[in-house]
Design a protein around this nucleic acid. Structure first.
Lengths: 335, 335
DNA sequence: GTCCGGCACTCGATAGCATCGAGTGCCAGC
DNA sequence: GCTGGCACTCGATGCTATCGAGTGCCGGAC
């Protein structure tokens, strides 16, 4: 049912439609190299491809457009992550050569790099804080009953939480609490912070307990400072209805949806979700290409690009694969 | 030349156009209350208003549309920041009652509040870090030659910078450097950090110097973590050309442009920039309503909304004024 | 003088209509 | 099983007529 010729025809339709956004007719397909048959034959195969659900005809006497299933087949069996061209390779290379600075900055710039490469929106999600280890913890007073607990994590991230204390607490006691917390928390994984044993000073213990619970809850929510979205304006150009743009922007603004999308595929390696596959209604017209990146052999986060279903998959796949690999390597060097 | 009737006519045209986005004809204007003259008379005045540059006629035999000058006059002399309605007041009230957490979170949520109130994009910029005082400073090692300097500032913000050291440095020396830095830097304003005197240990001094210079340069750039943009998707709905949306999104993504826009008007109090007035070409079709907010009598940052030139000024002005005031009050309480 | 009713005019928007052409489905023949 | 031929479909394009909201102007009324 899906012989070589049909595959070739499907490929041409998808590639052509990605490029032109216009329904593709049999004559165009027949003209393509590697399809050495007449338009009439192409038409017959197209009917079959349509019956099998790979193509769709907007109306009688129009060309064919790929369905989600068609894109899926294209991505799964017809496309090998096309090589990036010279200038793009160079762009990635010089980016990682120049890149410096803290984790956040790095991830932020990576998101810009990705959208620059693909011309779609890009998302970069850092390591979930809960798996990181505490390197340092400190309590800092801000006015009489307010304090900030600041923890530096093993991945270079800094997490902080605001405390409201029941009783006033002086500088000395805060320092004592800091010392006490440091003794018990440093070296622990954020999601498994132990309860801190009593120190003999009730104020110190109250502050300590508040700090631990604040850190725990900070570990829960996906740290908003570790999610970076970029290139929304580039992506906008790929749609022609303002309403579509609005819907997609709305999703990109709800970071937890985006994070969920990426986290879902974290253990699947480089992967693609097309149209309805990711189950977010507002993104029916969109596809997402995602890959995790690994720091020292451990999955540390994910990067992805989000574009229209008719996105340029070879390029997107290549860019995401390349950047995730380089990013992981770069972050491993550092540590 | 600009008698009461013409003002009334201009007002009706602006208000009508804001609501419908359609050129406004003399008949509509004449029907409005407070304009008790015939369409013919309205037309005569409209010709005058057009000659004076307040109105524009897209083509002969079309209604009139306000020019930037027309909006300017409307904003300056015809509009008093219309009161917010009941439900909106409640929304603001309950927001500030519930609001909690660290500065960043607060500002982020404020941006969401603002775009929720106005249905336009909103921008919230925190205090420039350079004016804040250092409350605490700490060096944390990350691998052999890498360290993070983390400083907690008086406004509750945490600034951090990544250090790459020439020589390896152990935990003990880092602790010594932290102590040394703390002695000299705590209580100082970030933009006026003194050079740290020698401690007698060259490694400690090298780390200290690196930390100070990293903090200084971190103070320079507008901290990306203190700029919050929200509601871009809502704003998109106000335009009907995808290309306009794309341009505006592009600007919103370049945070330094947005920050510049807001900082420019910081000392002018509540103010409006219409169309070309802010000098950003891509925002010709946009207006910006901005207000600073004060924490304990000092200007601490600015908030604003960005929408189409035909934005609903009374509402936007009221929302920005209200929120900036409440935000300032709220942040003052805390400290 | 100021305002207004009346009137001819403009011009975008809408609708109807013919035409064009890319594309289809099908069939008969090689 | 492939192909050329052919009738058919139907959106896109372009033309024309019509409609109507809106204008500018003039001459008369208060």
């Amino acid at each position: 049912m899906m012989d070589e010729r049909r595959k070739a025809i499907l490929r041409v339709v998808v590639e052509e439609y990605i490029e032109t956004a216009q329904p593709v007719g049999s004559t165009h397909v027949a003209r393509a190299p590697h399809v050495a048959v007449s338009p009439a034959t192409v038409r017959n195969d197209m009917v079959a491809l349509e019956q099998d659900g790979y193509l769709h005809q907007p109306h009688t006497s129009a060309g064919r457009v790929p369905t989600d299933k068609g894109y899926r087949f294209f991505v799964d069996t017809l496309v090998q992550p096309g090589p990036l061209d010279e200038t793009e390779l160079q762009q990635v290379g010089s980016f990682f050569a120049k890149a410096h600075g803290a984790l956040e900055e790095m991830l932020h710039d990576t998101s810009r790099l990705l959208s620059g490469l693909t011309d779609y929106a890009s998302v970069v999600v850092g390591e979930p804080a809960e798996d990181a280890m505490v390197r340092s913890v400190q309590l800092v007073g801000l006015g009489a009953r307010h304090a900030l607990v600041v923890a530096v994590l093993s991945n270079g991230a800094v997490t902080k939480a605001h405390l409201e204390l029941a009783d006033e607490i002086g500088e000395g006691r805060l320092a004592a609490a800091t010392a006490h917390l440091s003794r018990w928390l440093i070296g622990r994984v954020l999601s498994e912070l132990p309860p801190v044993p009593p120190s003999g000073d009730s104020l110190v213990d109250a502050a300590g307990a508040a700090a631990v619970s604040a850190l725990r809850s900070a570990a829960q929510r996906p740290d908003p400072e570790q999610v970076f979205v970029g290139g929304a304006s580039r992506m906008a150009a790929a749609f022609d209805a303002v309403d579509s743009v609005r819907r997609v922007l709305g999703i990109l603004e709800q970071q937890y949806v985006v994070v969920g999308l990426l986290r879902d595929v974290l253990d699947r390696g480089l992967s693609v979700a097309i149209g309805g596959e990711h189950g977010v209604e507002s993104l029916l017209e969109c596809s997402v290409v995602v890959a995790p990146y690994e720091v020292e052999g451990e999955v540390a986060g994910a990067i992805g690009v989000l574009g229209p279903t008719r996105m340029h998959y070879p390029k997107a796949l290549a860019a995401v694969a390349m950047v995730s690999q380089r990013l992981g390597r770069r972050l491993s060097d550092d540590a």
